[in-house]
Design a binder for these strands. Structure first.
Lengths: 204, 204
DNA sequence: CGACTATACGGAGACAGTCTCCGGTTAGCA
DNA sequence: TGCTAACCGGAGACTGTCTCCGTATAGTCG
């Protein structure tokens, strides 16, 4: 039992170093959470996670007072990946349309980390009190990097707010996730958004 | 107790006419559900609804096996309103941009009947097994009416699929609802979509 | 190395929501 | 008035959330 996937789940110690056993349980919980959320989506049972990690519910709730704290924890390296993708999209220096197509797809991939993740992220977007608010900001910053770059090269129309673009793509990710349609089918919607913000587009 | 709002909740009898007491309870349940969903959103307690209607849980579940059946019931006249709005939008025969601005706003208004409604509708969009699938189709049909009309007048670009437009606006409604931002703030996102599908747009 | 204490564990159980089962009630009809 | 099919409703099983507190132990210090 307790098949802890000993991949790169290792977590650098938080501010105050935990006692050895506490750190052990923390890691087991994050690993179990990753499993359960992957299988059952963001609404998976927390007690189930505790059971699978081989600890009591009390231990889970001490480490992670709310569900979102847990989600935040298992997204530790997620932020870095998001940022890396945005930087790569800018660095590739492709035509604006391709840049956006690529970046939006990445964005959706990150937003749909597991079922229900997109909805959670979207909801936390304007809620500074949420534990995952920071993650949302990361996402917004990454998106802003790409949008700003394209704005500077005059590829986008004036007055394109990266925040709105972000929300729009989050919305696409959320509906795609909720209705269970494959990610590729989101492409036509992304194209509409791209056509909506690009300065010059074929008037097909 | 049981403050049944005796507005236009009256419901035409379903296929098999219910017994008088059953019909009475059915109506009370729908009214109570409308109240509770309005206050607490789509995740409001079903037992609470039963209590407020003054009936036992068993009665609720006999009439409405699932939560979605109940939601479907309280949206009985909703479909007609949606269709009416789409027809009005077409009939007004305004410039394409105004038509879309108006219609999309209506669409969002209908999608956010109560908190959580947009997410539910979005999820049911590709799930024919859902009790509210019909409602989604109504929405899609209404939207198609407007989009098709604008396509015929060559106001939209070629290959604009109304289904995708529908999903896009649903996504906007869902994130706006989930993050609790006021409906007006959705306008910039709608503008992007409109710019994305309009054949001619100012290249501001 | 043994004792001490802050830290952490974990499970019993309170609470809330979902959903079912079935003994009792009643509307509608002859 | 009496019969029966249709309906009611609440007890309670079940699942998931979250807390409290007695018990255990890691890390430290003499």
């Amino acid at each position: 039992m307790v098949p802890v996937t000993s991949t790169e789940d290792a977590v650098e110690a938080p501010a105050k170093p935990l006692r050895a056993d506490a750190q052990r349980n923390y890691d087991k919980l994050v690993a179990a959470a990753r499993e359960v959320f992957a299988e059952r989506g963001a609404e998976g049972s927390l007690d189930e996670i505790a059971k699978r990690a081989g600890v009591g519910p009390g231990t889970l709730y001490r480490h992670f007072p709310t569900r979102d704290d847990l989600i935040d924890a298992l997204m530790r390296d997620w932020s870095a990946r998001v940022l890396a993708d945005s930087e790569a999209a800018v660095a590739a220096d492709l035509p604006a349309r391709e840049t956006l197509e690529r970046w939006f797809m990445d964005l959706i991939k990150h937003l749909t980390l597991h079922r229900g993740a997109a909805a959670k992220l979207s909801a936390a977007f304007d809620d500074p009190a949420s534990p995952i608010y920071r993650k949302c900001q990361m996402l917004a910053d990454a998106n802003d990097l790409v949008v700003s770059h394209l704005t500077e090269t005059h590829a986008l129309r004036d007055n394109v707010e990266s925040r709105q673009v972000m929300r729009l793509v989050s919305g696409i990710a959320t509906v795609a996730d909720a209705s269970g349609i494959p990610i590729e089918e989101a492409a036509p919607m992304l194209d509409i958004v791209i056509d909506g913000i690009l300065r010059d587009r074929a008037t097909s």
